[in-house]
Computed example of a mutant assay.
Amino acid sequence: MKKLINNPDDVVREALEGMAAAHPDLLTVHFDPTYVVRADGVPDGKVGLLSGGGSGHEPMHNGFVGRGMLDAACPGEVFTSPTPDQMQAATEAIDAGAGVLHIVKNYTGDVMNFEMAEEMAESGGIDVRSVVIDDDVAVEDSTYTAGRRGVGGTVLIEKICGAAADKGYSLDDLEALCTRCNDNVRSMGMALTSCTVPTAGEPTFDLGEDEMEIGIGIHGEPGRKRMEVEPADQIVERLMTPIVEDLPFKDGDDVILFVNSMGGTPLIEVYLAYRKAAELAEQHGLRVVRNLVGPYITSLEMAGLSITMMRADDDIVELWDAPVHTPGMRWGA
Rank of each mutant, 00 (worst) to 15 (best):
R287I: 10
H30S: 04
D206P: 05
L286W: 05
A281V: 01
A322P: 00
I214M: 11
N106T: 05
R38I: 07
T241R: 11
G52T: 06
L257V: 06
V151A: 12
I307D: 11
V139Y: 09
T91N: 07
H284E: 13
S55E: 10
E282A: 15
V12P: 00
E119V: 08
G97R: 03
D321W: 00
V293I: 15
A176P: 07
L174E: 07
L300V: 11
M212H: 08
R224K: 14
D314L: 01
F79C: 07
W320K: 01
G54Y: 00
S123P: 00
T326L: 10
L50K: 00
T80N: 01
G18D: 07
V65P: 15
S81M: 06
D10H: 10
G220L: 11
P43C: 04
P231Y: 10
M190K: 10
Q234I: 14
L16Q: 03
A191C: 12
M19F: 15
G285Y: 05
T204L: 14
E122Y: 05
S261L: 12
P248L: 14
G217L: 10
A117G: 11
R330S: 14
L192Y: 14
T193P: 15
V259R: 13
K2S: 12
F258N: 01
G252P: 14
T91E: 00
V132S: 01
R287V: 12
H30G: 00
D210N: 14
H102F: 10
R226T: 15
G99N: 02
S55R: 00
D254F: 10
V11A: 01
